[in-house]
Protein backbone atom coordinates (compact mmCIF):
# COMPACT_ATOMS: atom_id res chain seq x y z
CA UNK A 1 0.00 0.00 0.00
CA UNK A 2 1.52 3.25 -1.08
CA UNK A 3 1.85 6.20 1.21
CA UNK A 4 0.82 9.67 0.29
CA UNK A 5 3.71 11.52 -1.28
CA UNK A 6 4.05 15.26 -1.40
CA UNK A 7 3.55 16.63 -4.89
CA UNK A 8 6.14 15.51 -7.35
CA UNK A 9 4.25 13.31 -9.77
CA UNK A 10 4.13 14.45 -13.38
CA UNK A 11 0.62 15.47 -14.24
CA UNK A 12 0.90 13.36 -17.37
CA UNK A 13 1.10 10.33 -15.12
CA UNK A 14 -2.46 10.70 -13.96
CA UNK A 15 -3.55 7.75 -15.99
CA UNK A 16 -7.17 7.27 -15.04
CA UNK A 17 -7.92 10.73 -16.34
CA UNK A 18 -7.88 9.77 -20.00
CA UNK A 19 -10.20 6.94 -19.20
CA UNK A 20 -12.91 9.14 -17.92
CA UNK A 21 -12.10 12.05 -20.20
CA UNK A 22 -13.68 10.09 -23.00
CA UNK A 23 -16.60 9.37 -20.68
CA UNK A 24 -16.76 13.09 -20.03
CA UNK A 25 -17.30 14.05 -23.61
CA UNK A 26 -20.05 11.49 -23.79
CA UNK A 27 -21.59 12.92 -20.63
CA UNK A 28 -21.30 16.41 -22.02
CA UNK A 29 -23.58 15.48 -24.86
CA UNK A 30 -26.02 13.81 -22.55
CA UNK A 31 -26.03 16.67 -20.10
CA UNK A 32 -26.65 19.19 -22.84
CA UNK A 33 -29.51 17.12 -24.12
CA UNK A 34 -31.12 16.94 -20.73
CA UNK A 35 -30.46 20.52 -19.69
CA UNK A 36 -33.88 21.67 -20.82
CA UNK A 37 -35.68 19.13 -18.77
CA UNK A 38 -34.00 20.05 -15.54
CA UNK A 39 -33.82 23.75 -14.89
CA UNK A 40 -32.05 24.47 -11.65
CA UNK A 41 -31.51 20.83 -10.78
CA UNK A 42 -27.96 19.59 -10.92
CA UNK A 43 -27.10 17.25 -13.65
CA UNK A 44 -23.45 16.55 -13.56
CA UNK A 45 -21.96 18.84 -16.20
CA UNK A 46 -18.39 18.67 -17.43
CA UNK A 47 -16.07 20.77 -15.33
CA UNK A 48 -12.65 21.69 -16.57
CA UNK A 49 -9.73 21.48 -14.18
CA UNK A 50 -5.98 21.38 -14.36
CA UNK A 51 -4.51 18.19 -12.96
CA UNK A 52 -2.74 18.86 -9.71
CA UNK A 53 0.27 17.04 -8.34
CA UNK A 54 -1.72 16.37 -5.18
CA UNK A 55 -2.70 12.84 -5.93
CA UNK A 56 -2.34 9.45 -4.35
CA UNK A 57 -1.31 6.52 -6.46
CA UNK A 58 -4.07 4.22 -5.13
CA UNK A 59 -6.65 2.85 -7.51
CA UNK A 60 -9.64 5.14 -7.92
CA UNK A 61 -12.96 4.07 -6.42
CA UNK A 62 -15.43 3.59 -9.28
CA UNK A 63 -17.58 6.65 -9.90
CA UNK A 64 -20.69 4.53 -9.53
CA UNK A 65 -19.72 3.78 -5.91
CA UNK A 66 -18.62 7.32 -5.12
CA UNK A 67 -21.98 8.68 -6.24
CA UNK A 68 -24.30 6.04 -4.77
CA UNK A 69 -22.76 5.22 -1.40
CA UNK A 70 -22.23 8.00 1.08
CA UNK A 71 -23.62 9.74 4.13
CA UNK A 72 -25.59 12.94 3.64
CA UNK A 73 -28.22 12.83 6.37
CA UNK A 74 -30.09 15.79 4.88
CA UNK A 75 -31.32 13.30 2.29
CA UNK A 76 -31.79 10.30 4.60
CA UNK A 77 -29.77 8.11 6.92
CA UNK A 78 -29.02 5.19 4.62
CA UNK A 79 -26.01 5.37 2.39
CA UNK A 80 -28.14 4.87 -0.70
CA UNK A 81 -30.53 7.67 0.33
CA UNK A 82 -28.53 10.68 -0.91
CA UNK A 83 -28.48 9.36 -4.49
CA UNK A 84 -32.12 8.30 -4.29
CA UNK A 85 -33.60 11.39 -2.61
CA UNK A 86 -31.60 14.36 -3.85
CA UNK A 87 -33.30 14.79 -7.24
CA UNK A 88 -35.27 17.88 -6.19
CA UNK A 89 -32.31 19.75 -4.80
CA UNK A 90 -31.42 22.95 -6.69
CA UNK A 91 -27.74 23.84 -6.48
CA UNK A 92 -27.91 26.80 -8.85
CA UNK A 93 -27.75 29.68 -8.37
CA UNK A 94 -25.63 29.52 -5.23
CA UNK A 95 -24.14 32.09 -2.89
CA UNK A 96 -21.93 31.71 0.15
CA UNK A 97 -22.03 34.26 2.93
CA UNK A 98 -18.51 34.74 4.28
CA UNK A 99 -18.17 36.82 7.42
CA UNK A 100 -17.23 36.96 11.06
CA UNK A 101 -13.74 38.12 11.97
CA UNK A 102 -12.73 39.28 8.51
CA UNK A 103 -11.82 42.62 7.01
CA UNK A 104 -14.01 42.12 3.95
CA UNK A 105 -17.19 40.22 4.71
CA UNK A 106 -19.01 39.39 1.47
CA UNK A 107 -21.55 37.24 -0.25
CA UNK A 108 -19.74 35.19 -2.83
CA UNK A 109 -21.45 34.14 -6.00
CA UNK A 110 -20.29 30.62 -6.70
CA UNK A 111 -20.51 30.77 -10.47
CA UNK A 112 -18.43 33.93 -10.47
CA UNK A 113 -15.74 32.69 -8.13
CA UNK A 114 -15.39 29.51 -10.15
CA UNK A 115 -14.35 31.56 -13.14
CA UNK A 116 -11.89 33.58 -11.07
CA UNK A 117 -10.09 30.87 -9.12
CA UNK A 118 -8.46 28.09 -11.14
CA UNK A 119 -9.99 24.66 -10.60
CA UNK A 120 -7.63 21.79 -9.84
CA UNK A 121 -8.09 18.07 -9.80
CA UNK A 122 -6.90 16.32 -6.66
CA UNK A 123 -6.95 12.59 -6.07
CA UNK A 124 -7.47 12.14 -2.34
CA UNK A 125 -8.20 9.29 0.00
CA UNK A 126 -11.49 9.59 1.84
CA UNK A 127 -11.78 7.75 5.14
CA UNK A 128 -15.17 7.48 6.83
CA UNK A 129 -15.36 7.13 10.61
CA UNK A 130 -17.51 4.04 9.92
CA UNK A 131 -14.28 2.36 8.73
CA UNK A 132 -14.81 2.34 4.99
CA UNK A 133 -12.70 4.32 2.56
CA UNK A 134 -12.54 5.52 -1.02
CA UNK A 135 -10.11 7.20 -3.41
CA UNK A 136 -11.79 10.12 -5.16
CA UNK A 137 -10.69 12.49 -7.94
CA UNK A 138 -12.08 15.78 -6.64
CA UNK A 139 -12.15 19.07 -8.51
CA UNK A 140 -11.87 22.21 -6.46
CA UNK A 141 -9.66 24.95 -5.14
CA UNK A 142 -7.76 25.59 -1.91
CA UNK A 143 -9.93 27.03 0.85
CA UNK A 144 -7.09 29.46 1.50
CA UNK A 145 -7.81 31.14 -1.85
CA UNK A 146 -11.27 32.03 -0.62
CA UNK A 147 -10.03 33.05 2.83
CA UNK A 148 -7.50 35.40 1.24
CA UNK A 149 -10.34 37.30 -0.43
CA UNK A 150 -12.06 38.10 2.85
CA UNK A 151 -8.87 38.87 4.76
CA UNK A 152 -9.23 37.19 8.17
CA UNK A 153 -8.43 39.46 11.11
CA UNK A 154 -5.61 38.66 13.52
CA UNK A 155 -8.17 37.63 16.13
CA UNK A 156 -9.64 34.90 13.90
CA UNK A 157 -8.61 31.43 15.11
CA UNK A 158 -11.25 29.14 13.64
CA UNK A 159 -13.42 28.76 10.57
CA UNK A 160 -17.04 27.65 10.93
CA UNK A 161 -19.10 26.16 8.08
CA UNK A 162 -22.81 25.69 7.61
CA UNK A 163 -24.86 23.51 5.26
CA UNK A 164 -28.00 24.85 3.64
CA UNK A 165 -31.38 24.14 5.26
CA UNK A 166 -34.11 23.38 2.72
CA UNK A 167 -36.61 20.88 4.09
CA UNK A 168 -38.65 21.11 0.89
CA UNK A 169 -35.73 19.88 -1.19
CA UNK A 170 -33.95 17.79 1.42
CA UNK A 171 -36.32 15.09 2.69
CA UNK A 172 -34.08 14.19 5.63
CA UNK A 173 -34.64 17.65 7.12
CA UNK A 174 -38.36 17.13 7.64
CA UNK A 175 -40.54 14.53 9.25
CA UNK A 176 -40.30 12.58 12.49
CA UNK A 177 -37.10 11.29 14.00
CA UNK A 178 -34.57 13.59 12.51
CA UNK A 179 -31.23 12.21 13.54
CA UNK A 180 -29.36 15.51 13.76
CA UNK A 181 -30.03 19.18 14.40
CA UNK A 182 -29.98 21.36 11.32
CA UNK A 183 -28.10 23.13 9.95
CA UNK A 184 -25.19 20.73 9.81
CA UNK A 185 -22.22 22.70 11.13
CA UNK A 186 -18.53 21.99 10.98
CA UNK A 187 -15.31 23.78 11.74
CA UNK A 188 -11.55 23.86 11.35
CA UNK A 189 -8.74 25.63 13.09
CA UNK A 190 -7.55 28.49 10.88
CA UNK A 191 -4.18 26.84 10.21
CA UNK A 192 -5.96 23.62 9.17
CA UNK A 193 -8.25 25.65 6.95
CA UNK A 194 -5.31 27.35 5.30
CA UNK A 195 -3.39 24.13 4.75
CA UNK A 196 -2.80 23.54 1.03
CA UNK A 197 -4.44 20.11 1.22
CA UNK A 198 -7.73 21.61 2.40
CA UNK A 199 -10.01 22.31 -0.55
CA UNK A 200 -13.49 23.38 -1.38
CA UNK A 201 -14.65 20.83 -3.94
CA UNK A 202 -17.01 21.73 -6.75
CA UNK A 203 -16.74 18.54 -8.75
CA UNK A 204 -15.59 14.97 -8.97
CA UNK A 205 -14.64 12.64 -11.78
CA UNK A 206 -14.39 15.52 -14.24
CA UNK A 207 -17.89 16.83 -13.62
CA UNK A 208 -19.70 19.20 -11.32
CA UNK A 209 -20.65 17.69 -7.97
CA UNK A 210 -23.75 15.53 -8.07
CA UNK A 211 -26.40 16.64 -5.56
CA UNK A 212 -25.80 13.60 -3.41
CA UNK A 213 -22.13 14.42 -2.95
CA UNK A 214 -22.70 17.92 -1.65
CA UNK A 215 -23.50 20.09 -4.66
CA UNK A 216 -22.57 22.65 -5.51
CA UNK A 217 -19.68 23.12 -3.09
CA UNK A 218 -18.32 21.15 -0.15
CA UNK A 219 -15.30 20.90 2.09
CA UNK A 220 -12.68 18.17 1.61
CA UNK A 221 -10.04 17.68 4.31
CA UNK A 222 -8.34 14.44 3.38
CA UNK A 223 -6.57 13.74 6.68
CA UNK A 224 -9.79 13.93 8.69
CA UNK A 225 -12.78 11.60 8.92
CA UNK A 226 -15.38 12.18 6.23
CA UNK A 227 -17.95 13.82 8.49
CA UNK A 228 -15.72 16.93 8.64
CA UNK A 229 -16.43 17.39 4.93
CA UNK A 230 -19.48 19.62 5.30
CA UNK A 231 -21.60 19.69 2.14
CA UNK A 232 -23.71 22.26 0.25
CA UNK A 233 -22.06 25.14 2.12
CA UNK A 234 -23.95 28.42 2.42
CA UNK A 235 -22.09 30.12 5.22
CA UNK A 236 -18.47 30.45 6.32
CA UNK A 237 -17.68 32.39 9.48
CA UNK A 238 -14.30 33.21 10.99
CA UNK A 239 -14.41 32.99 14.78
CA UNK A 240 -12.19 33.36 17.78
CA UNK A 241 -13.58 30.36 19.70
CA UNK A 242 -13.82 26.76 18.57
CA UNK A 243 -17.18 26.56 16.76
CA UNK A 244 -19.76 23.87 17.56
CA UNK A 245 -19.72 20.89 15.19
CA UNK A 246 -22.67 18.62 14.44
CA UNK A 247 -21.39 15.16 15.30
CA UNK A 248 -19.53 16.35 18.36
CA UNK A 249 -22.77 17.90 19.58
CA UNK A 250 -24.64 14.68 18.94
CA UNK A 251 -22.09 12.43 20.67
CA UNK A 252 -19.18 14.20 22.36
CA UNK A 253 -17.72 10.94 23.65
CA UNK A 254 -17.66 9.51 20.14
CA UNK A 255 -16.75 12.39 17.86
CA UNK A 256 -14.27 15.16 18.51
CA UNK A 257 -13.63 18.55 16.94
CA UNK A 258 -10.37 17.45 15.34
CA UNK A 259 -11.45 14.05 13.97
CA UNK A 260 -8.06 13.37 12.47
CA UNK A 261 -7.84 9.89 10.99
CA UNK A 262 -5.97 7.95 13.66
CA UNK A 263 -5.63 4.16 13.75
CA UNK A 264 -4.50 4.37 17.38
CA UNK A 265 -7.66 6.02 18.71
CA UNK A 266 -10.73 3.78 18.54
CA UNK A 267 -14.26 4.91 18.15
CA UNK A 268 -16.41 3.29 20.87
CA UNK A 269 -18.07 1.18 18.20
CA UNK A 270 -15.40 0.72 15.60
CA UNK A 271 -11.77 -0.08 15.79
CA UNK A 272 -10.10 2.46 13.53
CA UNK A 273 -7.04 0.30 12.90
CA UNK A 274 -8.20 -0.98 9.52
CA UNK A 275 -10.58 0.08 6.79
CA UNK A 276 -12.51 -1.53 3.97
CA UNK A 277 -11.81 -0.11 0.53
CA UNK A 278 -15.09 0.37 -1.29
CA UNK A 279 -15.38 -0.94 -4.81
CA UNK A 280 -12.50 -3.38 -4.77
CA UNK A 281 -13.42 -6.71 -6.23
CA UNK A 282 -16.90 -7.75 -7.27
CA UNK A 283 -19.47 -8.79 -4.76
CA UNK A 284 -19.01 -10.38 -1.37
CA UNK A 285 -15.63 -11.99 -1.77
CA UNK A 286 -13.45 -9.47 -3.58
CA UNK A 287 -13.08 -6.89 -0.84
CA UNK A 288 -10.08 -6.28 1.30
CA UNK A 289 -9.21 -4.60 4.52
CA UNK A 290 -6.19 -2.35 4.55
CA UNK A 291 -4.37 -0.78 7.47
CA UNK A 292 -5.45 2.73 8.28
CA UNK A 293 -2.59 5.22 8.25
CA UNK A 294 -2.07 8.05 10.72
CA UNK A 295 -3.65 11.21 9.26
CA UNK A 296 -4.97 8.97 6.50
CA UNK A 297 -1.50 8.79 4.97
CA UNK A 298 -0.97 12.57 4.95
CA UNK A 299 1.16 12.66 8.10
CA UNK A 300 4.22 14.12 6.34
CA UNK A 301 2.13 17.09 5.32
CA UNK A 302 0.00 17.75 8.35
CA UNK A 303 1.43 16.12 11.49
CA UNK A 304 3.27 19.38 12.20
CA UNK A 305 -0.04 21.15 12.74
CA UNK A 306 -0.53 19.12 15.88
CA UNK A 307 2.97 19.17 17.35
CA UNK A 308 2.80 18.84 21.11
CA UNK A 309 -0.89 17.98 21.17
CA UNK A 310 -2.17 14.81 22.81
CA UNK A 311 -4.10 13.32 19.93
CA UNK A 312 -5.79 10.80 22.20
CA UNK A 313 -7.31 13.68 24.09
CA UNK A 314 -8.02 15.87 21.08
CA UNK A 315 -9.59 13.16 18.92
Amino acid sequence: MSLYRPPRTQSSEITPREVYLSRRSFMAGTAAGLAFAASGTALAAPLAATPSAYKVADKLTPKQDVTTYNNFYEFGVNKSDPAANSGDFKPTPWAIEVGGLVAKPQVIDLEKIMTEIPMEERVYRMRCVETWSMVIPWIGFPLSALLDRVEPLGSAKYVAFETVVRPAEMPGQSGFFQPLNWPYVEGLRLDEARHPLTILATGLYGETLPNQNGAPIRLVVPWKYGFKGVKSIVKITLTEKEPPTTWKNSGPSEYGFYANVNPAVDHPRWSQATERRIGEGDGLFGGRRVDTLPFNGYADEVAGLYAGMDLKKFY
Binding site: Q64, Y69, W132, R276, D282, G283
Partner: peptide, 17 residues
Amino acid sequence: FYLGIYGGLGADPVREF
Protein backbone atom coordinates in the same frame (compact mmCIF):
# COMPACT_ATOMS: atom_id res chain seq x y z
CA PHE B 1 -26.18 -14.08 -0.72
CA TYR B 2 -26.99 -14.52 -4.38
CA LEU B 3 -27.13 -10.75 -4.89
CA GLY B 4 -23.88 -10.39 -2.99
CA ILE B 5 -22.06 -12.80 -5.21
CA TYR B 6 -23.22 -11.07 -8.35
CA GLY B 7 -22.50 -7.54 -7.17
CA GLY B 8 -26.10 -6.62 -6.36
CA LEU B 9 -25.59 -5.43 -2.80
CA GLY B 10 -24.19 -2.03 -3.58
CA ALA B 11 -20.82 -0.49 -2.87
CA ASP B 12 -20.12 -2.23 0.45
CA PRO B 13 -21.62 -5.69 -0.03
CA VAL B 14 -20.06 -7.26 3.05
CA ARG B 15 -21.57 -4.76 5.44
CA GLU B 16 -24.88 -4.84 3.60
CA PHE B 17 -25.01 -8.64 3.83
